[in-house]
Computed example of a mutant assay.
Amino acid sequence: MTDLGLPENILACLFDLDGVITRTAAVHAAAWRQALDAFLRERDGTDFRPFTDADYAEYVDGRPRSDGVRAFLASRGVDLPEGAPDDPPGATTVHGLARRKNELFLERIRAGGVEAYDGTLRYIRAARADGLRTAVVSASANCRDVLHAIDAECLFDTRVDGVVAAERGLPGKPRPETFLAAARDLGVPPGRAAVFEDALAGMDAGRAGRFGYVVGVDRVGRPDALYAHGADRVVTDLAELTGEPGGPKDPAER
């Protein structure tokens, strides 16, 4: 068996997608910046203040798109009509801005493809080889397509993403309901499941759901913030949890 760096009572691992499994967090941030800066520049003119990395971390990262729009606009004192989920990307509504961001994200993904964190994929394979159940929990409605692009759908026993959350009426992070739903799908109580997240909203969800262990994955150099929001341990790569250079080996290599 591989030492996965988890408490002995853990039976399941619940992984966020962007920033934990795939290198798409930066793509999301760039798409948000492009969509929101265009809106703010047109609205505020010479008083324009750009969307920042701090704004992304505080208001947007890990949340469903429309929730991210609402949270960010509230921070700037901007009130927009909700509109409808089928608003076109150019509509000056909450849903219109969310659609515009997603359009820009998909354009960037199609242009550059999707890259996975190899250390995470090795870790997931090792966890499954040791009998742990696995789930992907993401706010993204594009989660399935992204997993397919990296040939990783087979690594998860269940998927609770933006599409599934909408179908089940689950609120997004920082609420814990999507993680709790994944644990239920796996037949594992929250106290025996570990959450792997890079977003502050995801940390909050892990803490609120009273999960057995919460791992903060720090890709951008903010360990203190991840601990403050509920991480039990912070790593820069999941390989660190195993204590092995390069992380756990694939089952065929052990």
Rank of each mutant, 00 (worst) to 15 (best):
E153D: 15
A231Y: 08
G83W: 07
P223K: 01
V146M: 05
E58H: 01
R184S: 14
L4C: 05
R63H: 04
D161N: 11
D161W: 00
G83M: 07
A194T: 05
A165M: 14
R122W: 11
L14C: 10
P50L: 03
G187E: 06
D218Y: 10
I109W: 07
I10W: 04
A193F: 02
G119F: 08
A228F: 02
G246M: 14
P248G: 10
R125I: 12
A26H: 06
F156P: 09
V20N: 09
G191R: 13
D232L: 08
G131E: 14
G162P: 07
G172S: 12
R192P: 02
L226I: 13
R63S: 07
D161G: 04
G221W: 13
E244Y: 05
C143Q: 01
R99C: 04
G202S: 07
F51K: 01
R49W: 01
A166S: 14
D55Y: 02
E107H: 05
R219L: 09
H229M: 05
L170K: 06
A74N: 00
A116H: 13
P174A: 09
A183P: 03
P223Y: 07
D16C: 07
P85C: 09
A127Q: 14
D145C: 01
R184V: 13
L238H: 04
P248Q: 04
F39Q: 03
E153V: 15
F51N: 02
R192K: 13
A165F: 01
H148Y: 10
A84N: 09
Y227T: 12
F48Q: 03
R222M: 14
G172H: 02
A231C: 12
A71F: 03
A38P: 03
D204C: 12
A205T: 03
V78E: 05
E177R: 02
A30D: 13
L238K: 10
L200S: 10
V69Q: 06
D250L: 15
T2S: 13
L4R: 01
P190W: 10
R122K: 15
A57R: 11
F51C: 05
P248E: 12
R233I: 15
D61W: 09
R33W: 02
D237T: 14
T52W: 07
H95K: 00
A152H: 11
L36N: 01
E8G: 04
V234R: 04
T22F: 07
G45R: 05
D37E: 09
A29P: 02
Y117W: 11
D157N: 15
R159D: 02
D185L: 11
D151E: 15
W32E: 11
P64D: 01
M1I: 10
D53Y: 03
C154V: 15
S75Y: 11
G112S: 12
G172E: 12
D18I: 03
P88W: 06
A152L: 14
V195C: 14
L106M: 10
I109R: 06
A29W: 02
F196H: 08
V235T: 07
Y123W: 15
P176G: 08
D55F: 05
E197M: 04
P176V: 09
D157F: 11
A231K: 13
P176A: 08
R207D: 02
A166T: 13
R207K: 10
R159G: 00
A91M: 10
V94E: 13
F48S: 02
Y117V: 05
R49C: 00
G90S: 15
R122S: 13
P190G: 13
D198W: 04
D145Q: 12
R65M: 00
D61G: 00
T178D: 05
